[in-house]
Simulated assay, not measured.
Amino acid sequence: MSESKIVICPACASANRVPVEKLGAGGTCGRCHAALFQAAPLTLTAANFDAHAGRGDLPLLVDFWAEWCGPCRQMAPAFAAAARELEPRMRLGKLDTEAESAIAARYAIRSIPTMILVKGGREVGRQSGAMPASAIVGWARGLA
C-alpha cells in the first residue's frame, strides 16, 4: 500500500488523504471540491490555523505580517514566489498579526515579518526579516 499524507483543504479546512505520489497532480477536496493546491499562500485565520498547523501532514510555513509593515509588503511577492516552488510538499500561509493577535501572541511574535515553519503542530524553525524568494525556499527546505 502506498504512503499517503493528510492535506488540509485551503477552502473548507477538511482533511483529505492524498497518496504521496499524487501530491504533484494537485487534486480536489473530497468535501467542497476546491483545489487542494493553489501555488499561492493561503490566508490563515483563527478558523483555519490549527487545522493547517496541527492536523495536516504537510509542513506549514507561516508568514506573520501586518498591512502597515513596509518590509512585510516588500516580502509578499517573494513569499508568493516561494509558494509556487515549495507546493505541494509544503503549505504556505500568511497570518495578519493585527487581525489574529491571539495566534501571534501564542507564537510570541515580536517583530514582523517573521516566518515560522510548523511540522506536526510544533515550531521547527523561525526567521525574522524580509528575505528574497530563493532564501525563503532554501531556508524552508533545509528545515523540512
Results as ranks from 00 to 15, higher is better:
2 S>T: 05
3 E>G: 05
4 S>L: 04
5 K>M: 01
5 K>A: 01
6 I>Y: 02
8 I>Q: 00
8 I>R: 00
9 C>T: 00
10 P>C: 07
12 C>P: 00
15 A>M: 08
15 A>R: 11
17 R>S: 08
17 R>D: 01
21 E>M: 04
21 E>L: 10
22 K>A: 09
22 K>G: 00
23 L>E: 03
25 A>K: 13
27 G>T: 10
27 G>Y: 13
29 C>W: 11
30 G>C: 11
31 R>A: 14
32 C>W: 05
35 A>D: 11
37 F>D: 06
37 F>M: 09
39 A>Y: 12
39 A>R: 15
39 A>K: 15
41 P>F: 08
41 P>C: 05
43 T>K: 13
43 T>V: 10
46 A>K: 13
49 F>R: 01
50 D>Y: 12
51 A>D: 08
52 H>V: 08
53 A>S: 01
53 A>D: 00
57 D>T: 01
59 P>C: 13
59 P>E: 06
60 L>H: 12
61 L>H: 11
64 F>W: 00
65 W>M: 01
65 W>S: 07
66 A>V: 06
68 W>H: 14
69 C>V: 10
71 P>Y: 09
72 C>P: 03
73 R>I: 10
74 Q>A: 14
74 Q>S: 14
78 A>I: 15
79 F>N: 10
80 A>I: 03
81 A>W: 11
83 A>Y: 10
83 A>W: 13
84 R>D: 12
85 E>M: 12
85 E>S: 15
86 L>E: 08
87 E>H: 10
88 P>D: 11
91 R>M: 02
91 R>Y: 05
93 G>H: 05
94 K>F: 12
96 D>R: 07
97 T>L: 07
99 A>P: 04
100 E>Y: 13
102 A>S: 14
106 R>Q: 14
107 Y>C: 00
110 R>G: 12
110 R>Q: 15
111 S>R: 04
114 T>W: 04
115 M>K: 11
115 M>N: 09
116 I>A: 05
119 K>S: 12
121 G>S: 10
122 R>L: 03
122 R>N: 05
122 R>H: 13
123 E>L: 04
123 E>T: 09
126 R>E: 02
127 Q>W: 13
127 Q>E: 10
128 S>L: 02
129 G>T: 03
129 G>I: 06
129 G>A: 00
130 A>Q: 08
134 S>E: 15
136 I>D: 00
138 G>W: 14
140 A>H: 06
142 G>M: 09
